[in-house]
Simulated assay, not measured.
Amino acid sequence: MRCLYAGILAILLSSCGKSVKTVDDQGVKIAYVDAGQGDTALLFVHGWCLNKGYWSNQMDHFKDRYHVVAIDLPGFGESGKERTEWTTENYGRDIDSVMSQLHLNKVVLVGHSMGGDLCLEAALHAPDRVIALVGIDNFKSINPETPTQKADDARTYTVLKEGFTKAAFQYFQGDLFYKTADTIQRRILTDVANADSAVAIAALQGNDNFEERKNLQAFGKPLYLINSDYTPTDTAALTAAHVPHEVMYIKDTGHFPMVEKPADVNAALDAVMANITGH
Rank of each mutant, 00 (worst) to 15 (best):
K166S: 15
A271M: 02
M59K: 00
S228Q: 01
L73W: 03
D234I: 03
P74Q: 09
G278A: 12
T146Y: 08
D175L: 00
A151S: 11
D196A: 05
R187Q: 07
H255K: 04
D196H: 09
D60P: 02
A198H: 09
V259T: 14
P222T: 03
V247Y: 04
A267L: 13
N209W: 01
M99H: 12
D117P: 00
G174F: 04
Q101E: 09
G116I: 07
A237Q: 11
V20E: 15
G77S: 06
R93G: 04
G220Y: 04
F210R: 07
N105L: 03
G80C: 05
N143M: 04
K29E: 14
Y32P: 05
V68Y: 00
S79T: 02
V33H: 05
C119W: 03
L12A: 13
P222Q: 06
I188Q: 00
R2T: 15
N266K: 03
N215W: 04
F219M: 01
T40F: 09
E89W: 03
D196P: 02
D25P: 01
N143P: 01
H112L: 06
V110K: 03
P74A: 13
L42P: 05
F139R: 02
F172C: 02
K21N: 14
D60Q: 15
I71Y: 06
A203K: 07
K261P: 03
D208A: 11
P244D: 08
T40E: 13
S197F: 01
A241N: 07
K166P: 04
A181T: 13
Y171T: 07
L120A: 11
P232G: 07
T190K: 04
L118N: 15
K18R: 14
D252Q: 11
W55M: 04
V247N: 09
L124E: 08
Q205E: 15
K21F: 12
L73M: 08
Q173F: 00
Q149G: 07
G38A: 09
A218S: 10
R186M: 14
T180G: 01
V108P: 05
S15I: 14
N227K: 05
A181H: 13
D128R: 12
H125A: 09
A236P: 03
L104K: 08
G53R: 02
D234N: 15
V159M: 14
A195P: 00
G220H: 10
L269I: 07
L204Q: 11
N275K: 15
Y66T: 10
A263P: 00
G80W: 03
A200K: 06
H112A: 02
A126S: 15
V33K: 12
L124C: 09
D96A: 15
I30V: 14
I201Q: 08
L9S: 15
A202K: 13
P257Q: 10
Q101G: 12
G115L: 11
W48A: 06
V98M: 04
L176I: 10
E121V: 04
H125Y: 14
V23T: 12
H245P: 06
G174D: 06
N275G: 09
H112S: 07
M258Y: 08
N90R: 11
K18F: 13
E246V: 10
D94T: 11
I71C: 09
Y249D: 06
A271K: 08
I201M: 06
I250S: 11
L13E: 14
H112C: 03
R187L: 14
D234R: 13
F76P: 00
L269M: 13
G163R: 06
N143G: 09
D234Y: 07
Y224E: 08
S19A: 11
C119Y: 07
D234F: 02
F139E: 06
